[in-house]
Design a protein around this nucleic acid. Structure first.
Length: 297
DNA sequence: CGCATTTCCTGGTAGC
DNA sequence: TGCTACCAGGAAATGC
């Protein structure tokens, strides 16, 4: 699923292509709705750049608007025009001038968004409006991260996924980063110690940077603008690997559900706070935390 | 306001 | 083969 590394990979490819291009027209193929608001204002505006905040792509337009794209679970941005219309094409943007002159937004499950807002007006996008700091912002220190975590009683993984303490971390990289620093995903955010917060921020930066270098993680749908898969899936240590051995200690990785999301962790490396009191703690085999499964309807 | 729960959506798959 | 049921999850909407 597209998280910061995947969105940044797409951004880097879109930027040289789209910057300075004038929009001729926009075609909405999906049923109209708030996820595709304002597209009627696009024609005649020039795309002034391609930025990113967290998992949101932000393209300022010349007449005071801003094109906001979020890939959701299955969104793909790519040049289009050749061949048959894709089954799940939702939006097509025709550009003036030379080829490629058509940007297509395909999104099988329609969790993504592709809309135009007044520049900087994110009232229709509350997560973007309340988004935490960019992970690679130099002004974002470990102390600030620790302070942000201290504001929530939520499980640390759930809080990371909320995008409030830090922007761009999703299910995959949350599991990877928490495993790297040995913090149990159910640890209350406010109980993460200062040293753990510092290590967690460092781990988030490392895993995101390594994934960007690999052009992201392709599990199923994610593709770069030019149709390539990301290579980081081969380098995941824990995500989706419940039942396999922990790469660090060899214990069996376990799966639980945190905030409604599948979560993989190492029961030995990532002790639940309720089980990790001071001194040496000896736990029997199978000491993993039991959590109720996903509720049914 | 904080936090939990429910909803949106389709392809893949398990089970019969 | 074809049917039903369920599962995956980012962000918004809804409920307390």
């Amino acid at each position: 699923m597209p998280e910061l590394p995947e969105v940044e990979t797409v951004r880097r490819q879109l930027e040289p292509w789209l910057t300075g291009r004038r929009i001729a027209r926009v075609e909405l193929l999906a049923p109209p709705g708030p996820k595709y608001a304002g597209l009627g204002r696009a024609a005649g505006q020039t795309i002034e750049g391609v930025g990113r905040r967290g998992k949101f792509l932000l393209m300022p337009l010349s007449k005071g608007d801003e094109l906001v794209a979020h890939l959701g679970m299955t969104g793909v941005l790519s040049p289009g025009g050749a061949g048959e219309r894709a089954k799940h094409l939702r939006v097509a943007v025709d550009l003036e001038g030379g080829s490629p002159n058509r940007l297509e937004f395909n999104d099988t499950r329609r969790f993504g968004r592709f809309l135009i807002v007044k520049r900087g007006d994110y009232s229709a996008l509350p997560t973007l409006a309340a988004l935490g700091p960019e992970p690679f912002d130099d002004a974002f220190t470990a102390e600030r991260f620790h302070h942000a975590l201290g504001r929530s009683a939520m499980a640390v993984k759930t809080y990371l996924l909320s995008q409030r303490p830090i922007a761009g971390v999703g299910n995959i990289y949350a599991d990877e980063a928490l495993w790297r620093v040995g913090v149990h995903p159910l640890t209350p955010a406010a109980d993460v110690r200062a040293d753990e917060a510092a290590a967690l921020l460092h781990a988030i930066r490392e895993v995101l940077a390594a994934s960007i270098d690999a052009q992201g993680t392709t599990l199923n749908d994610y593709r770069t603008v030019y149709g390539q898969s990301g290579d980081y899936a081969d380098r995941l240590d824990v995500y989706g690997r419940a039942g396999h051995e922990c790469p660090r200690c060899g214990a069996r990785l376990e799966r639980l559900v945190v905030g409604g999301r599948g979560t993989t962790f190492c029961p030995d490396c990532q002790r639940h706070p309720a089980q990790r009191g001071g001194g040496a703690v000896t736990l029997g085999a199978g000491a993993g935390v039991q959590v109720a499964g996903r509720r049914r309807k």
